[in-house]
Each structure stands twice: as structure tokens, then as C-alpha cells.
Write a protein that binds this DNA or RNA. Structure first.
Length: 85
DNA sequence: GTGATGACGGAAA
DNA sequence: CTTTCCGCCATCA
């Protein structure tokens, strides 16, 4: 799970549901626990909205993640967890 | 063992 | 498109 999160390249994002389809909430809890060492900012909700806050958005924009209003353009930035490895 | 909660997701109105 | 409601599995009190 965390392995996938780490495999997400800069400029792209994945979703909690991708990392843990059976318990997406659990994925979030794990990320929080993981803290640093994982690009947690590249993990967003399935609809592209952010879960953490402004901090996350800044990081994503800095990496060139396309935004549409308050949400990420999943069509462009979403990389399915399956493709990570 | 039980009940409540959460960095979520999908369906319905 | 937005707002509501229920289900999911693991943790914690």
C-alpha cells in the first residue's frame, strides 16, 4: 500500500480507494501515521478534491499537477495504482 | 466483546 | 452540478 504511494511520480496523483479499495479510510489513517517519507500529498480523493488542506494543494501545484478550481484534474493527473507496479 | 470514529467511495435525490 | 445517506475495515476507548 505505502509502496504504491511512494511509487506515484511527481506531477501525478492517486486515490485512497486505489491504495486500499476495501478500506480507503484506513489508507488515509496509514498515511497520516506514515508522516514523512511518503508523498502523501500525491494522494487525493476519488473525485479529485483534497483531503488535507491548503498545504497539500501548494505541494501539488508546485509539482505541476493540473487543477480545476478546488479539485485536481483526475483525467490528466490520476495514475491508477495498478500502473505503479 | 461493544460502540464510536475516520486523510473515503458510491448511489440517490 | 451540489447535498445526503449508508457501507466499508481497522483502531481505539
Amino acid at each position: 500500500m505505502l509502496r504504491r504511494a511512494r511509487a506515484v511520480p511527481a506531477g501525478f496523483v492517486t486515490t485512497y480507494g486505489d491504495l486500499c479499495p476495501k478500506a480507503p479510510r484506513f489508507a488515509g489513517a496509514v498515511m497520516s501515521n506514515a508522516g514523512d517519507g511518503v508523498p502523501w500529498h500525491r494522494v487525493v480523493r476519488a473525485d479529485g478534491s483534497l483531503a488535507v488542506g491548503e498545504r497539500q494543494r501548494r505541494r501539488l501545484e508546485a509539482e505541476g499537477v493540473p487543477f480545476r478550481g478546488a479539485r485536481v484534474e483526475m483525467e490528466r493527473a490520476w495514475v491508477p495504482a495498478e500502473r505503479l507496479g
